[in-house]
Design a protein around this nucleic acid. Sequence first.
DNA 1: AGTGATTTGTTCGTATGTATT
DNA 2: TAATACATACGAACAAATCAC
Lengths: 86, 86
Amino acid sequence: MDADAVIDHEAPTPVYAQLAAILRARIERGDWQPGRRIMSEAQLVQAYGLARETTRKAVRVLIEEGVLFTVPGRGTFVTDDGETAE
Amino acid sequence: MDADAVIDHEAPTPVYAQLAAILRARIERGDWQPGRRIMSEAQLVQAYGLARETTRKAVRVLIEEGVLFTVPGRGTFVTDDGETAE
DNA sequence: AGTGATTTGTTCGTATGTATT
DNA sequence: TAATACATACGAACAAATCAC
């Protein structure tokens, strides 16, 4: 299931969870390679038409999954493994 | 439309059951599609002139029937199944 | 040196939902 | 009936880290 890549504000699934699924799919698809930087928060806001805090929460979900990690002043990056961080 | 679209406080049928029947009919009629959000509790209260707990009890009935489900912070939604068995 | 742009981090406020007491 | 709590979503503002010039 490759998540429509479109946010549905009326769906029961929270918007941040929808975005997290979209980003997860894009990473698994290879849009962003391990160790590479993904879109900035501002770009996510622009691209998906969401509030910044909503995009941040989506990113936070993937961080907790070990898929992403952030560096203040630098950006948000894909974990080298893609899943478990040893 | 239907006569049962109006709450009768004098009828032997409990008000919450009447509302549950009304909502069930509206869903079967397609007023709210599967996966879509129905009116909020506040809107139900406003629309049918009932106490909040009464509307919640009506919703609870439909939840137990598997027709509705709630998501905190999101709303009350129509269950996806019912049409396609899979 | 320092200045500004970019990016993440943080903290407020507002609004709408359901859940609980 | 009322109050409180919790979850979601948007908006605004400011700080801190980084980078380019």
